[in-house]
Design a protein around this nucleic acid. Structure first.
Lengths: 196, 196
DNA sequence: GTCTATACAAAGATAGAC
DNA sequence: GTCTATCTTTGTATAGAC
């Protein structure tokens, strides 16, 4: 997907992504046109398109990175002996309103089967469900989750809940996403030990 | 909002909305340009824009109608002595994939505070939460819902769940929205009598 | 490989004639 | 109330300079 691995190209790609993220965060998705993004990164539109073939690819790359950062954070917490604090999920990247908006709008647009990022999101949702299911299954095996709860069904609901909460939060920032996720997990009967 | 109340204008508006809905349902949101919508309704682009100032207003009107139809259906069921079958919610208009896509994409776009339909959705979400809360509260008063469940918190989660499920369903139609909602309600401890 | 300038198609919106 | 014509802005493709 990347057009090159040369040092200069890589550095410029970083610069573009950073600038793009800042634009999206500050002025919103609508104002994030390739002209604006190019200008912010200090090159022409076509210069930007040399590195990222299309606008969609650029945004997909931003979200891909968000996922990498989030997963690394979860990984670190897990290997440190902590339980993955699922109720913290919405706090990970969601502190950045621009990122949440980008994710929400882009995932909605890519709903179109012919959208470039359609497969990206389809697979992403599959992975999200699968990972959530694995965690819930582990909890169930440890006796922390009632056997009556179907991990697969719960995982799908959890992923849906996160998406839906982000939308509502974009319309009303008083929505407490973390509290809602905690509520959901409590309803599942998840025994959460000393969650600070 | 409407440009006129003359019989001819009203009839044309109906025709436009019906045609627009068909286009969206059949060819998706992206292909639903005002040119295409105008063509389908048998007039020019500007002819269409005379009736609906902008594309956004047209779509907002379609969704407004979806809500009216859905609410009427719920109202009818309720006054017939039936409980509002919340788990049937995703089945109401959601049988029509085009409508679900329209709703999902439009609600994501209107996330931008400067979008014409922003206030429409903000208020719509408020109403949705409020109505869900009222129903859950009623159930709790009837002893069908554990007193430990906070109706407000549960209402927000329910609305979020519905939105999130629709997104996932658009990527994978094997997602069973009704089953997921039923699962959620069961986890709340809702005592659902003879749900057929 | 990296980039700029030019050119173009399609979108939504507006002005003014009929 | 409806249309033609025009305007602006979007994203993208092409040609070619360094």
């Amino acid at each position: 997907m990347a057009s090159s691995n040369y040092p200069k190209g890589l550095a410029k790609r970083e610069e573009i992504l950073t600038a793009a993220l800042a634009i999206v965060a500050e002025r919103g998705y609508n104002r994030a046109t390739i002209r604006e993004l190019a200008e912010a990164a200090g090159l022409s539109k076509t210069g930007l398109l040399h590195h990222f073939g299309t606008k969609e690819e650029l945004f997909a790359e931003i979200l891909r990175r968000r996922d990498v950062v989030d997963e690394a954070q979860i990984e670190r917490a897990t290997s440190a002996g902590l339980d993955p604090k699922i109720s913290d999920l919405p706090r990970l990247s969601s502190g950045v309103p621009g990122l949440v908006q980008l994710y929400t709008r882009f995932s909605a647009e890519a709903t179109d089967p012919e959208h470039t990022a359609h497969d990206f999101f389809r697979e992403r949702y599959e992975r999200a469900r699968e990972r959530s299911r694995a965690v819930l299954e582990k909890f169930r095996a440890e006796g922390r989750l009632p056997a009556s709860v179907d991990p697969e069904q719960a995982a799908t609901a959890l992923v849906a809940l996160l998406d839906g909460l982000q939308i509502q939060w974009l319309y009303d920032s008083s929505i407490d996403m973390a509290a809602e996720v905690a509520f959901f997990l409590a309803q599942l009967g998840l025994d959460s030990p000393a969650s600070e």
